[in-house]
Design a protein around this nucleic acid. Structure first.
Lengths: 253, 253
DNA sequence: TTGTACTAGCTGTCTATACAACTAGACGTG
DNA sequence: CACGTCTAGTTGTATAGACAGCTAGTACAA
């Protein structure tokens, strides 16, 4: 077992360098599923760091699920793969890229509207507040994948109507121009039959199955910043995600 | 701001007691969304622990998403709710209970079969290895919710055919009798039209939309232990889940 | 053979301390 | 008013050490 040496002049923290070194070895297959990762002691001695620093590096690997720990035995590489295409908060462009497809969009409408009951409740704003409404057809490799309709409170990005280039990524614009970075989202997924109107736009037969997503995206503070309703073709689109078992003690009480 | 005192004679770690104390205050509304949580310093002084212990408690809260941190400013309560019914690895019984429904099952078949190509690949076993196959209709409040078919390698639980009471929970039996605790699962979700046969069993019209789940459940080490294929009624069943944005640095390389 | 005691090695928890990096506000100067 | 400077408070990183609790193996005794 080799451990790459640390760059003590780097701005990158030591625990992060250690984490990345181990991750490299796991990705490259030097460390295989089931193998023992070097112990905290060993890392500490070999790299000349304190045990707590080594521990922090190992903990970060465990947190993302690539290793697991058995008390009194050691830390081992898990057989869980770091999959790029597990469902997470991504822009459509990013998500299609992860699937190896080229994303594009066709804007159907882009306007301001007044918030109705449901959206106001979801976004924690007043009924009647002004929202941007952006409706797009989402295309992957030039054929339609879904219809998406986003609502965003105007006060978060007052001049969006002027500054937003519909060809660009909405998420990127919000992040770069307004500092609004969505990091968590709650989503309800339904399976349904496509409506006649949607069937035309999606170029699928009437009565085809579709996914209907209702998503509320949030920033780090938990503040809801986007309400999205979308309809995706079930013949082209599948959901791939990873479930974990949460700590029951935290939820039940 | 009050902080409940610690029990130094308890087997529960100090950081855990602190975490629970803060969690109680958040749940009870004493600490509301956006409020500042006591700083590491303050917790350390008031409870007589070291700063690193206080830090560990705060980090555990951040990890589960109930707080977030701004460097140089402090730690704050997030508006994310700890929801019971976000999608996670649960037995059917547990999941229905979280939705306020009473689960029951009807066993259609319970037998051993030889693994085919697809399942062998998913479970990392040899084609032809012996599997238990358990096919059930899942009922919620006495009406059908879905059809589920589980495959489990025989070597994990050799005498399951004899010991398993079909009225009991498969997950609980595996956990208690064989120490097989599934903690993570990868799932593919499709939307489709119900087959004629399934429509009869689910008591829904032909051509209704359904969810089709293909799930591989794993234990902590990442070893796959269960392959499940299920068909759920879309008129009664919705998916509710929480997405997060993963650290891109970890995935892209 | 069975069980007990011991040991080496591992992770889990906790302390005490230090310095770096950042935020927000107060204060003074031009 | 605008712009630095300073300071108090906060989180981030890192060190060195201590003891508890668990695992797996070894050695020894009954």
């Amino acid at each position: 077992m080799t451990l790459s040496l640390l760059d003590r002049t780097s701005v990158l923290p030591l625990y992060y360098q250690i984490q990345q070194g181990l991750l490299d070895q796991i990705r490259s297959g030097t460390l295989k599923a089931g193998d023992a990762v070097p112990s905290e002691q060993e890392i500490a001695e070999r790299l000349g760091v304190s045990r707590m620093t080594a521990r922090q590096a190992l903990k970060s690997l465990r947190d993302i699920g690539v290793t697991y720990t058995e008390r009194g035995r050691g830390t081992f590489v898990s057989a869980n793969k770091l999959e790029k295409n597990i469902r997470q908060v991504l822009s459509f462009t990013e998500e299609m890229a992860a699937r190896g497809l080229r994303a594009s969009s066709k804007v159907l409408s882009f306007e301001t509207v007044q918030a109705g009951e449901e959206i106001a409740a979801a976004l924690h704003i007043q009924k009647g507040d002004t929202l941007f409404k952006l409706q797009r057809i989402r295309m992957a490799d030039k054929s339609p994948m879904g219809i998406e309709c986003s609502y965003i409170p105007q006060h978060l990005c007052p001049d969006l109507l002027k500054t937003f280039d519909p060809a660009a990524s909405l998420y990127r614009t919000l992040s770069e121009r307004y500092g609004v970075r969505m990091t968590v989202a709650d989503e309800v997924v339904e399976a349904a039959l496509v409506s006649a109107q949607d069937a035309r736009m999606l170029q699928i037969p009437r009565g085809s199955p579709v996914f209907v997503f209702t998503r509320v995206s949030r920033v780090q503070s938990g503040q809801a910043v986007e309400y999205v309703k979308s309809t995706y073709r079930a013949d082209r689109y599948k959901i791939t995600h990873r479930l974990t078992r949460l700590n029951q003690e935290l939820l039940t009480k």
